[in-house]
Design a protein around this nucleic acid. Structure first.
Length: 423
DNA sequence: GCGATCAGAT
DNA sequence: CACATCTGATCGC
């Protein structure tokens, strides 16, 4: 029987060491306060944010990995009983506070697990990350790349977060008398809120738990839990709905802003929301944005409702960034770590031509069923670029048959992999 | 009764 | 619609 060695963002039993890329809930499913299977490696910031998320957790299990530093771990191959060493380095993933990618070296070769990441080469942090990654790789080639394929589709392209942040500021400025609410998650988008706070010289309201997170991150001056101090509030995304906005507007004029990737741009025509009553989103965009904002910043803003704007502020890489990243690394194998409806069948299907389009890049050699990964990353979900058309079609039909079962399976193994010994 | 997991909504 | 999160129902001990 195969035994586990390393798990990343996966918390079931069977591994000797566990790695956490960041603290978003879909990467911690299965982790709990009572979890105590083995040492848990993470970044310093993640370790700092960890206790309030898992009160009572045995913190002696946490192992902090400093970013950019190699660590060597001694593991036991349970099938052979022999000691084997692996090396690991954490690199800033530029996703949310504490988020890192992990580069592993060991008997399994060279493996990079990006976790959720944004490869925004125009930004300083990403440039540092790039240098660090290239430095860590030296002349090694990545054998297997586990990549954040959330937006691994040519339809997804969005501006830098700096540009998107300015779009948000412009929207707020165009409603000087309105209250503003911004939908955010329990972690992430801090830079956006800081930018708004600094540009508009306002504090931003957050809910109490979120203020605690801000304080743990060392952000003290820009946030408040007192509603009276500001017209700008950041609210949990799940409570950000059309109904909420309509309710708020019966009391005070309020505009909602949803910073998010760009899925809605795929929508063809009209607004599905019946309460919207608009003939088309494009028309509405023209009316709402034409006057107040310079063109440079309005390319991707969408207004889907009388009170709601969507701004393409994304903590995931868009498609051109994913392509850039894959071209840089030239990995032998690629596997997507996210299974969502849009990238469900073959998450990296659209990457298949990257090597082919440039003679500089070697065509990847695909070994099917290499069997290093368990969980949701079964062979049918691996996005090996060179998989033949016939096989893909077969898989598609198969998955279509099993759709219901599969969806529930995918939910269970949403993120994370277990890397196992090859016996 | 509690935590873990799942389905559904937001 | 995506992603990430929440709530409430159900399962298993």
């Amino acid at each position: 029987m195969e035994r586990g060695m390393i798990s990343v963002d996966r918390w079931a039993e069977g591994s000797q060491v566990y790695f956490l890329t960041h603290l978003h809930a879909d990467h911690t499913a299965g982790l709990s306060s009572s979890w105590k299977r083995a040492p848990l490696f993470c970044s310093r910031i993640t370790a700092k944010l960890f206790p309030p998320k898992f009160p009572g957790f045995d913190l002696s299990l946490l192992r902090v990995l400093e970013i950019g530093q190699w660590y060597s771990l001694s593991l036991v191959s349970l099938s052979t009983g022999l000691e084997t060493r692996i090396e690991v380095i954490a690199i800033d993933a530029n996703h949310c506070p504490g988020a890192v990618m992990y580069l592993f070296r060991g008997e399994f070769g060279c493996m990079l697990y990006t976790g959720d990441f944004r490869w925004e080469v125009t930004c300083k942090i990403a440039k540092v990350g790039k240098m660090m990654l290239l430095g860590a790789l030296r002349n090694d080639k990545v054998d297997t790349l586990y990549i954040d394929n959330t937006y691994c589709n040519p339809s997804y392209s969005f501006p830098s977060r700096e540009v998107a942040a300015q779009q948000v500021v412009n929207i707020i400025n165009s409603y000087p008398e309105h209250d503003i609410i911004i939908g955010i998650d329990s972690l992430g988008k801090e830079d956006l809120l800081l930018y708004i706070s600094k540009m508009l010289k306002v504090k931003i309201w957050v809910w109490p738990e979120r203020l605690q997170t801000m304080h743990l991150l060392g952000l003290h001056g820009n946030f408040t839990t007192k509603t009276t101090l500001t017209r700008v509030r950041a609210v949990p995304r799940y409570s950000f709905t059309v109904e909420t906005l309509e309710g708020l507007n019966t009391m005070r004029p309020t505009i909602g802003i949803m910073p998010s990737g760009l899925p809605w741009a795929l929508k063809k025509d009209g607004c599905k929301d019946k309460s919207c009553g608009l003939p088309s989103t494009k028309t509405e965009m023209g009316i709402c944005l034409g006057i107040n904002m310079p063109n440079k910043y309005t390319n991707n803003i969408e207004k889907h409702h009388q009170y709601i704007y969507t701004v393409p502020y994304s903590d995931h890489s868009c498609f051109p960034e994913i392509v850039e990243f894959v071209k840089l690394l030239c990995p032998s194998h690629i596997k997507g770590i996210v299974s969502s409806s849009s990238s469900y069948i073959d998450p990296c299907y659209y990457l298949r031509n990257i090597y082919g389009t440039s003679s500089l890049y070697k065509k990847p050699e695909i070994k099917e069923g290499s069997g290093r990964v368990e969980g949701k990353h079964e062979s049918t979900l691996a996005c090996d670029g060179c998989i033949e058309e016939k096989k893909r079609k077969r898989i598609k039909e198969y998955q279509s048959c099993l759709h219901k079962t599969r969806v529930s399976l995918l939910r269970r193994f949403k993120c994370g992999v277990k890397l196992i010994n090859e016996d």
